[in-house]
Design a protein around this nucleic acid. Structure first.
Lengths: 225, 225
DNA sequence: ACCTGAACACCGTTCAAGT
DNA sequence: ACCTGAACACCGTTCAAGT
């Protein structure tokens, strides 16, 4: 790790910086996908020795976390207004859209403790959901429940759709792979058989907003029952 | 790949079989977690050369898929009865419990096309959800929507909780890691501050059934609106 | 028919030595 | 202060050669 800047500079001059490393990492991820990011490849992109990176970031996990924190800090932070229920849904959509633009973030962050790890830049959206729940008449514990459920649902949607997209990139979805029903004429499965042909097309639709609304409305109905 | 058994056996006798390999893989996963499963380690467990495995399974992904198919085929398949809405929820709980017992399965299968890949043994539960939706008055497309949403929610819950458990194994949950709020006295985040101390404990609770119920009720309300 | 070691093309990370 | 190559301890997979 380099020390924080002091006036009297001595010793060998740096060939790179943490900022340069993060920018290059982001470039490579956008180009090849995050699974393909390697320390050695990153050093190659920067034209430096692979081991030099370890003077600027602790390890690969630290690098990814720095990248996520940077991304989170730079996201727009719109004022949420209107009915509490609508604010909660809008907050969920914001989380979703942020991850949809950078699906690998969901892979890295798919953990309950994510907000603590990513830090302050993400807390405001949690606060927004808790505030919406409270304004709707929920107890604090019910607010936490609502946040957790939105988080589960959103992570699941992002991960499933991201991995599906990786397998058969945009547009074509061979029924045999995308539909749960590839065989023919299984009389034990009448509903599945009936819908088999259209499954792929239906599963392609973006129904996040609709599903999130159902989840939030269901949770709020439970809370105020 | 070995050929299907024929009576006149010739050549070098096998030192293992696909069944033995799958059993050993399962043992190692249960012992060390699925991330630690390596082809070389598996061969070591069996006391054979690593490259021998490639005569019995195509590659590592094929091996994992065989393992999943075996697991799915062996799961109990209870009759679901009662109200359509309750049958849908019960089906979701069955999916959840199957994955909760083997969380790595969710990692491998977190893809829209999962049922096609895992094959017939998993189709009955999809049929059960579609049938419940139809009996409740949903169109086939609405049934597919309900299945997909249950799948997203369940995958998210399993993955988030599995990865969290891996980070701070059962019991203790340091607030600094498990709560979104580690700092103190941030007046911009009143609701978060108020609940910070109890967050870890609340987030520990298993609320899957409750959340799934909210989701299904919300979706059914949308469908029949 | 089946098994095997050597080899290929990779990983992340450490550390002593250099500038 | 910072950089570097060599080295360590791994991966999955292929393939020619052996039994």
């Amino acid at each position: 790790m380099p020390r924080s800047s002091v006036s009297g500079q001595t010793g060998r001059p740096p060939v790179t910086s943490r900022a340069e490393i993060l920018a290059a990492a982001r470039r490579l991820i956008d180009r090849n996908g995050w699974e393909k990011l390697t320390i050695r490849g990153l050093a190659g992109e920067l034209g430096i020795g692979a081991t030099t990176l370890y003077h600027h970031v602790r390890d690969k996990e630290d690098l990814l976390l720095l990248l996520l924190t940077e991304y989170a800090a730079q996201l727009p932070r719109p004022e949420l207004s209107g009915e509490p229920r609508d604010r909660i849904i809008a907050a969920g959509v914001l989380i979703h859209d942020a991850f949809a633009a950078w699906p690998w973030a969901a892979e890295v962050l798919a953990t309950d403790g994510f907000v603590a790890r990513i830090g302050d830049p993400a807390l405001w959206i949690v606060e927004a959901i808790l505030a919406g729940a409270a304004d709707h008449g929920c107890t604090p514990a019910q607010g936490v429940l609502i946040f957790r459920n939105i988080w589960y649902y959103t992570v699941g949607e992002i991960l499933v759709r991201a991995r599906t997209a990786r397998r058969h990139p945009d547009g074509d979805f061979p029924p045999a792979e995308n539909s749960p029903f590839s065989g023919t004429g299984n009389s034990q499965l009448p509903h599945l058989t009936a819908i088999a042909d259209q499954w792929g097309e239906i599963a392609q639709e973006n129904t996040f907003h609709q599903g999130l609304t159902a989840l939030v409305d269901g949770l709020l109905a439970q809370a105020t029952a």
